[in-house]
Amino acid sequence: MKRLIRIGLIPLLLAGLSFPSAASQTDPQGSLMWDYMRKLFLNDDPYLFDERIKVLVPEFAEDPTQVPVSVDARALDGDIRQIIAWADFNPIQHIFTYRPLRDVHPRLSLRIKVQQATPIRAAVQTMDGTWHVGTAQIDAAGGGCTTPSVGNADPYWESHLGEISSRRFSRDFGSRYKFKVIHPMDTGLVDLIPEFYLQQVTLKDEAGNELLQMDLSQPVSENPVLTFDTKNSDQSHYLLLRDNNGNEFEQAL
């Protein structure tokens, strides 16, 4: 059984295409929301579904408050302006916008909250302005003996807000940073708790050059765990975070 779903265009169709064909603009998930979402996030820019953009999710949201999502756009490395990810059927659809600037592989992972079964999209804009869309389907809460998590009833974050744990792993492609930030990531949609979430992530090198910028939205899970892949394994880096209340957090990695 194939549990991780990657749906996109047949790559052969794409090879050498300078204009997206009509077929490539058909949403593989057939979602009614596609056109609305596309206009919202991609305006009327040219786009095509592109199988080379990999969106990896589990088939079922075992814990709907912590659904792992990885986006891998390495196939278009060097030609990427930004990546926008969203979930069609979430009340707040936008998940993140990611801009690779230097020395990073355009690949990242994080965990998100989903409200119900939904397509997850990652639209990668190349330098010519075209959007290459990767997509995957995630089904609603799965498993027999699982109840939906109550969410962030845990007040732990109050005394640990912004604490960052991080680690660098050396990988054959360079290195991977994995980090975890203590933050409630409140959506503003539950029990009159105002929205309170991390909005900006920046990774810099020692000289202050930015490697990547990322804008996060409310669907990112409580106490976010993110990974970024860098090409250099011998440099040291630091991380800057900012939430919607203006709190700033910084950590040498």
Binding site: R3, L56, S70, K178
Partner: peptide, 9 residues
């Protein structure tokens, strides 16, 4: 340092 999806896979 694997991501959760990599382990699931």
């Amino acid at each position: 340092g694997l991501e959760m999806v990599e382990v699931i896979n």
